[in-house]
Amino acid sequence: MSDKGTVGESLDEVVHQRTRLSILMLLGGGVEVDFSFLRTSLDLTDGNLGRHLDVLAEAGIIAVRKTYNGRRSRSWIRLTDYGTLKLGQEARILRSIADQIDQVRAPNSDETY
């Protein structure tokens, strides 16, 4: 895929969706965080966050690891190598879009439309 393609062709909805992109940004840099950190940071309900994590996990973008303390479970989330690649692609595409916007000339104030 080329950064020169159309925006619709370039953006991956699994990654680009606002909440999922926020999750990926929090996971950037190779950190592993627990479910409650993401829930609190993003101000989401358990169910809403769980569904977004399911989508990302099904796409191979994140890995979820469960630990147990007695009967209490704790979920740990991290980017996979593929997820790191997809986040990098998204960042390049967004930079390309921003560059295209910056190149658009502002209309002269004396022009009439």
Rank of each mutant, 00 (worst) to 15 (best):
M1W: 06
S2R: 09
S2Y: 06
D3I: 03
D3R: 14
K4N: 05
G5E: 07
G5N: 08
V7R: 05
L11M: 03
V14A: 01
Q17E: 07
R18T: 09
T19G: 02
S22E: 14
I23K: 00
M25Y: 12
L27V: 08
L27Q: 10
L27R: 01
G28S: 11
G29M: 06
G29C: 07
G30P: 04
G30T: 04
E32H: 12
F37N: 02
F37Q: 13
R39D: 09
T40R: 10
S41D: 06
L42H: 15
L42K: 09
D43L: 12
L44N: 06
T45I: 10
N48Q: 15
N48E: 15
L49C: 01
H52D: 14
H52C: 10
I61L: 05
I61S: 00
I62C: 01
V64G: 13
R65P: 01
K66C: 10
N69L: 09
N69S: 09
N69K: 12
R72A: 03
S73Q: 10
W76Q: 01
I77F: 00
T80C: 04
T80E: 08
D81L: 05
G83N: 01
T84E: 14
L85N: 06
K86M: 14
L87W: 15
E90K: 08
R92W: 15
I93N: 00
I93W: 02
I93M: 06
R95I: 13
S96K: 08
I97R: 11
A98L: 13
D99M: 08
Q100Y: 14
Q100C: 15
Q100A: 14
I101Q: 00
I101R: 04
D102L: 13
Q103T: 04
Q103C: 07
A106C: 12
A106G: 09
P107K: 14
S109L: 06
T112V: 13
